[in-house]
Computed example of a mutant assay.
Amino acid sequence: MSKGHRYWYFDTGTSDERGKKIFTRLPDISDKTAFGAAYSAMMGHRTRRANAAAQMTVTAMIGLYRLSQKYTKLAAGSKRIYDIYLGELETMLGMAPADEVTRADIVLLVDKRAKHPAAANMILKISRALFKWARSRGHITADPCSDIELNELGEHQPWPDELLTEALASDDDRIRLAVHLLYYTAQRIGDVVRMKFADIKDGTLFVRQQKTGKELDIPVHALLAAEIGKAGRQIGPIIITARGSAITVSTLRHYVQAWAKERGHDVVPHGLRKNAVNALLEAGCTVAQTAAISGQTLQVVEHYAKLRDQRKLAIRAMSKWEANER
């Protein structure tokens, strides 16, 4: 009712981006023919939308998501991870109506991976991204991932100094080269296996991080340059298998971890990234300088800085104190 006039609106059954219902103006009810025709047409549209929503399966929703910019703009490495867990979600719930997936369904998916908390977290994160996108596009209204907590994960620990020293001087050429590359570039193992001789120009190694897409020009450390020189090749990937082919991430990770386990250490290659960041910080590099090598955010480097070896820092601090009082 406005200024003495009564207006009629149709509930479209949809909402805008703020969740507010969308209504469409109808003709004046006094014009029964126009009013009836408009109302019937709008009701038909709403019914078709409702039927389409009811028929939207998880498989169909995933198919639409893969066409969206949210997915297509992901880095290649991220896409591979998404594909793994979208595939799992489709295997478990593919034929279920997407709008009828419940919190209990997602909790079950997560809890089935209790022995692998990182994988459990990943399927939850990717499910959240999928359902959030689908809600934003009006395909569904369900929010089955709400209030499900991520598993707590322990951080990757740096390698013990004695293990790092042994690896850098190892008689195993592949271990020695791999650890030099991981440590002296502060990069992820996925980026290290993709490094080629052609990426090195004028003493600088070019890296395009697979996970973030960030491009880095990393000066080659003198010790790394000497180790790469021992490879005796000038083409192809820097690290190769015994047969001379490019090595995969899983193969190199298994090889490095098996070598460390033989020496009584349960470590992961990613721990060397923390060794490298700590070494840069302890050498007096600023957070920004360290991040320029590792490609991490300033916040991540600052977090690493807080976790540096307290004992080592305390010894150096005490030495400076004592020297100042002499």
Rank of each mutant, 00 (worst) to 15 (best):
L109C: 09
V207L: 09
N151M: 04
R25D: 01
A129V: 11
Y9V: 04
M61I: 04
K20G: 00
K214L: 01
H270R: 11
A129I: 11
F23K: 13
V268H: 12
R137N: 06
A276S: 15
A52I: 05
C285T: 04
P27M: 12
T91D: 07
Q299M: 06
I218F: 12
A75I: 07
C285A: 09
D83A: 10
L182N: 05
I62Q: 01
K261R: 11
W259L: 02
I247K: 06
L26S: 01
G44Q: 09
L74F: 12
K274E: 01
T91L: 11
W159S: 02
S15Q: 11
Q69Y: 14
K312A: 14
A178H: 08
G4P: 00
S294F: 15
A53P: 00
E17Q: 13
D161N: 06
H270C: 10
Y304T: 02
K3H: 15
A75E: 09
A288Y: 09
T241S: 14
T251A: 15
N324S: 14
K261G: 00
R80D: 10
D11C: 00
Y7R: 06
H303Q: 10
R273A: 11
S170N: 03
A114Q: 11
K230Q: 13
I84E: 07
T241I: 13
I84A: 09
Q289R: 14
L313D: 05
K201P: 07
T57K: 00
S2F: 15
R174W: 12
V110Q: 03
T251E: 07
A119V: 06
H156R: 14
